[in-house]
Design a protein around this nucleic acid. Structure first.
Lengths: 214, 214, 214, 214
DNA sequence: TATGAATGAGGATTCATTCAT
DNA sequence: TATGAATGAATCCTCATTCAT
């Protein structure tokens, strides 16, 4: 048989990853069976193994794709003129707009990263990249006099990342959670950390969907 | 053997739960086999099933015990004279001193709560109890003039819980994480939220082990 | 401890056998667990094993008791003045009055006898005894001129036994079955086989409970 | 493998059913393990579960196949010109020629039907069909003047079925049993019941193998 | 004797992966 | 490439039996 066009191959792989994400959000990595994924993707077991060497590999594929997307979006953040509003858009996207099932996948990934070296490598490198990006962002802003934090920018980055983690966790795990109001408050907190002289709790308005990141 | 003394039965149950926690922290709920747990507890399969009706039941037992302990500790918090230092001790315990494997169990629980109604019931009721406790605590402190937050105490409670979630997540997931410094900063943030007029970043010193809660 | 009085021992054994019969009628030999029987008898596992060395032994005990009773009742039959009415009482007892669960036990026994040598020995010896008893009964009646069958009495005995088997089977297996009417007809059939000259289908009336056999 | 041809699938299913029947005749439904059946069929556990969803399902499959065959053969009986000889062929097949293990399966089925609703439904519907078929057969023969029974045809049908049950039971359970002679006698009995005026015990000769039904 | 907790081999079933077609 | 039947080790759980108390 003639080799499939790379574009078709890529599309099929993506399709399988999409189906797998749905299954995994519903059941978790380890209760999702390859057969579940085959059914969800409308693909035979044999076909699935053309695109992924193993279940491990498929899970890694999901993580890689998700984290690459996050990393890409962070890169765009570097050019943002208004730091706080850029962070607001990011928060809006990841802690409000994005469907819960995408958040659940990230939790699965995080936990898996404590056990699975392949996932750990993907997950941690992106996590460090995120923090480094924040740190650079903050450092540049500080040098340009746009922010004047009391904390060093490394710590600041870690604080912001941790607050983000909290929002993501709660978004995924708490069905009674109202993300919007919380995001507003926490963005205010971050804003104050960046510029302690500014009055507390008058955060830049958020809520504009982050088109570019969807 | 005649009927075991309730104390012995309880101790044996606890022993199994301890062993199961170790396994689950290492492998997760679904990759941990009953056989693993038997081996870790030094107990036969049959004996294990004397104390737990099923794997589900054992998992629920772990969650219940863990959450009951948390709820108990929160109850003690109500009598704390100094709110911020009490929160500091709590944070110190859960985000710094407690071994990482205990934190991983909580992550497992949270994720499981999105899929397993029995776990959901345990997890969410305690989660709500935590937030309610915070809210009451803050409300009382506010009425006594010990704090003067801009936010309503309900929102404040949810913000504090979310920041806590972030610390717990990072403690569990990030091996490069230095919890102590982060806790100090975030406690400062909370302190400022409670009393916006106070200067930022001079939080009450933390680091004293939380004896009463261990 | 002082040895239990033999009467008490016997009573306890009987009690366990009764409980076991109930369980086995409900679930069959192999789906009945020793634990089921313990619960039904209100006896601990250890106690049960005082009276029966194994599950095999308990099953054999049930069979032995049941078959001994049957053999005993057949022995009484030997003295019956009216052959047909005596057979009628027997049929009435075993194919009409006796509770279905007792019949089910006999089916279990029969099947078990095809696989389990211990049961086979018990079951077959009594089965042969039954047929031999019938044969002798018939032979004596024939010699006394009370019956005048065309068939030899050995064959006659086997025919009667087989017809009995059919009634017992149907009684146990068919919930829509009306045993009374069938017994009447089949007793007529047997009556005719014994005395072909007598008019067909005016069997001796049956229906009187067989007190002595209960 | 691409999708197996339905014929192949059917054949493989039949093969498993055959193997399972052998095992079950030897050990009974509940002492036969799926592994036994796999070994007997030369098939892996996974393969077996392609064809049967569970042990229950496999047992139901055995019952269904067996009972469907019986029902089919009864249907053919409807066209028989000579009623007694047709019944003779049936008896010959089921109570003489058919291997004992097939008979044991039916006993297993019957007992299982008292506990397992799925089996009960299969077993009882065919049992009723058998009796109804007999009743119709007898009723037609009576209307055509070919028989002149004293009993109503419904009762007659139940009597004949019960006598059949007796023969089947004995064939399965009694290794000393000589089915041929008994069948001859009992067929004579039935013949007399159908036509009480005819002389007793000169039944139509039986013994010709029932080609069409094998 | 009696208790019932404990043992551990064994049973039904699942599922990642392979491979003949 | 794609199919899906087949493999078989691994999983959860049961249960006849034992034995320390």
């Amino acid at each position: 048989m003639p080799k499939l066009k790379p574009a078709t191959q890529f599309a099929r792989r993506e399709h399988i990853l999409d189906a797998a994400e749905q299954c995994i959000a519903r059941e978790g990595f380890h209760r999702t069976t390859m057969h579940d994924i085959c059914r969800a993707a409308g693909v035979s077991a044999g076909a699935l193994y053309v695109y992924f060497a193993s279940k491990e590999d498929l899970i890694a594929g999901i993580c890689e794709r998700d984290r690459a997307k996050l990393a890409g979006e962070l890169t765009q953040l570097a050019d943002a003129p208004d730091l706080v509003s850029a962070l607001g858009k990011l928060a809006q996207h990841y802690a409000v707009d994005q469907p819960v099932y995408k958040r659940l996948i990230v939790l699965e990934m995080g936990i898996e990263s404590t056990r699975n070296p392949a996932i750990a490598s993907i997950f941690r490198s992106v996590d460090q990249f995120v923090i480094e990006s924040f740190a650079k962002l903050f450092e540049r802003a500080r040098q340009q006099g746009r922010i004047a934090p009391h904390l060093d920018t490394q710590t600041l980055a870690r604080v912001v990342a941790t607050i983000g983690d909290g929002m993501f966790w709660r978004r995924a795990i708490d069905p009674t959670h109202n993300p919007q109001s919380l995001v507003t408050v926490l963005l205010g907190v971050i804003s104050t950390l960046l510029n302690p002289t500014q009055p507390l709790h008058h955060p830049a308005p958020v809520g504009t969907p982050m088109k570019a990141l969807t």
